[in-house]
């Protein structure tokens, strides 16, 4: 599946396109399929999110959204060495797939 991500303009926080707006939680990301370019163009023009981009992802065995690249998995959850600073609901996705 193809999902969209970027960083919030004001806070810099990692965000994911949930079909209507930008969510902090990777599990809210929706498959944008063929619409990726159109949404990216629109959202870039709206300037709410810094340089949004499309990435590949899959649904893991537990039903969670799993970005294909390790960099986006780290972005989804927060620094692996500071789990106390993890994205608040990261627990529902689990840490095991970071690496």
């Amino acid at each position: 599946m193809k999902i969209l991500t970027g960083n919030d303009l004001g806070s810099g926080a990692v965000t994911w396109w949930n079909g209507k707006g930008w969510s902090l939680f990777v599990d809210d990301a929706v498959d944008v399929g063929e619409d990726a370019d159109e949404i990216l163009a629109r959202e870039t023009a709206a300037r709410r999110v810094n340089v949004p981009y499309a990435i590949e992802a899959s649904i893991d065995a537990a039903g969670h959204v799993r970005p294909a690249h390790i960099k986006d998995r780290v972005r989804a959850l927060g620094p692996t060495v500071r789990r106390d600073l993890a994205v608040p609901t990261a627990g529902k996705t689990g840490w095991d797939w970071v690496i």
């Binding site: 960083n7 806070s11 810099g12 926080a13 990692v14 810094n50 960099k71 780290v74 972005r75 927060g78 620094p79």
Partner: peptide, 16 residues
């Protein structure tokens, strides 16, 4: 971007 970088403000993985 070039303006913020001149003031040491980067955008990293999780935040500025």
């Amino acid at each position: 971007k070039p303006l913020r970088l001149m003031n040491g403000l980067y955008l990293q993985l999780h935040a500025y």
